[in-house]
Amino acid sequence: MKWKRIGDILILNKKINDIEYFKKKGIKTIVKIEKIKGKVRKPEIKILYGSETETIHKENNCLFKLDISKVMWSKGNTYERMRIAKLVNKDETVVDMFAGIGYFSIPIAVHSQPKKVFAIEINPTAFKYLKENIKLNKVEKKVFPILGDCGKIAPELDADRVIMGYLPDPSKYLDSAMQCISDRGIIHYHEAVPDKLGFKRPINRIKSAAKDKDVKILHKRVVKKYAPGVSHVVIDALIH
């Protein structure tokens, strides 16, 4: 894909010739992503047209306010965000370990009936937008934002379902996720994996972290291509 639209901002992956066409379609800013930096995945962008980098993006009847110069948005995860929301059962407690601006937490609260969603985020900028998006979608009674390190916070919580939606490799947080599940629960584990390893590496990591607990793989799928020879995969694992 050469471009993607986030709200009224156009993000280019490759050079396009007809910028004027997009200006006529209600685009206020056109940018190109130069690189993604650090643990918090902060984008470095080049503005090609306009100046405003904050927008409100609508997806699956959810509203997401964000600044594309400060936080990431992946349109390739659209299906996955809704898939998880549909799996959440009534009165479940969900822990979203890498909540960002609410990518998973907001759709769960809007489309499901969870008891609580604990949305943990370490990046203060993303956390600011997470709190705004909770209000924007009127889910204050369902989503509880927590600023800090999920590796330390998650073990203090008790969940029926844990979402680990961080790339490229959240495996060092698997122990914390396991501690978050007392007797029985589901982990949605995301990882960027070399294609030659397939699903084997993430499944082995989940089983290793489970220790004396039993693991049943409920679902596995490729979410999208992450890099040449590398895929973003997700494993749904029942821990009991």
Results as ranks from 00 to 15, higher is better:
Glu92Pro: 01
Asp183Ile: 13
Ser112Glu: 02
Phe98Val: 07
Asp212Phe: 12
Glu132Asn: 09
Asn89Ala: 14
Arg161Thr: 11
Val94Lys: 00
Ile146Ala: 03
Ile134Ala: 07
Ala210Asn: 01
Ser182Thr: 15
Leu174Val: 00
Pro194Ile: 13
Leu136Gly: 01
Val110Phe: 03
Ile153Asp: 10
Lys152Val: 11
Gly198Thr: 04
His190Glu: 01
Ile134Cys: 06
Arg184Val: 13
Phe98Glu: 05
Asp175Asn: 03
Ser176Pro: 00
Lys200Leu: 14
Glu132His: 05
Gly185Leu: 14
Glu156Gly: 02
Leu147Met: 07
Asp183Met: 12
Ala192Arg: 04
Tyr166Ser: 07
Gly100Tyr: 11
Ala126Phe: 08
Pro124Ala: 10
Asp195Phe: 05
Val95Cys: 12
Asn137Glu: 11
Ile187Phe: 01
Pro194Tyr: 13
Ile181Gln: 04
Tyr189Ser: 02
Lys142Tyr: 10
Ala159Leu: 06
Asn204Gly: 02
Asn137Asp: 10
Leu167Ile: 15
Asp175Val: 03
Ile203Thr: 04
Asp96Cys: 11
Asn133Trp: 07
Leu130Met: 07
Lys116Tyr: 11
Lys172Trp: 09
Tyr129Trp: 08
His188Gly: 02
Gly198Phe: 09
Asn123Phe: 14
His111Thr: 13
Ile153Trp: 09
Asn123Asp: 15
Lys138Tyr: 13
Ala109Asp: 03
Lys196Arg: 08
Leu147His: 04
Asp183Cys: 11
Pro124Trp: 12
His188Leu: 07
Ala177Trp: 01
Ile146Glu: 10
Val95Phe: 12
Ile153Lys: 05
Cys150Asp: 09
Lys142Asn: 02
Lys135Tyr: 13
Thr125Trp: 04
Gly148Gln: 04
Asp175Leu: 06
Asp96Glu: 09
Ala210Asp: 03
Arg201Asp: 05
Ile186Gly: 00
Val139Phe: 12
Thr93Asn: 09
Pro168Ala: 11
Leu197Asp: 14
Val193Gly: 00
Lys138Thr: 03
Tyr173Val: 04
Ile163Gln: 07
Ile108Phe: 04
Met97Thr: 05
Asp183Thr: 15
Arg161Gly: 09
Asn89Gly: 09
Ala126Arg: 01
Tyr173Trp: 14
Tyr103Ile: 13
Val193His: 01
Asn137Ile: 10
Phe127Lys: 00
Pro194Cys: 07
Ile120Arg: 00
Ala209Phe: 03
Lys152Trp: 08
Gly100Arg: 10
Asn137Phe: 08
Ala177Glu: 00
Lys128Ile: 12
Glu156Met: 10
Ser182Val: 14
Gly102Glu: 07
Ala154Met: 05
Ile187Asp: 05
Ser112Pro: 00
His111Arg: 11
Lys207Met: 09
Glu92Gly: 04
Ser208Ile: 07
Ile120His: 00
Arg184Pro: 04
Ala210Gln: 02
Lys135Gly: 10
Pro155Trp: 11
Phe144His: 06
Phe98Tyr: 15
Asn204Ile: 03
Asp158Phe: 03
Tyr173Asn: 02
Ala119Asp: 06
Leu167Met: 15
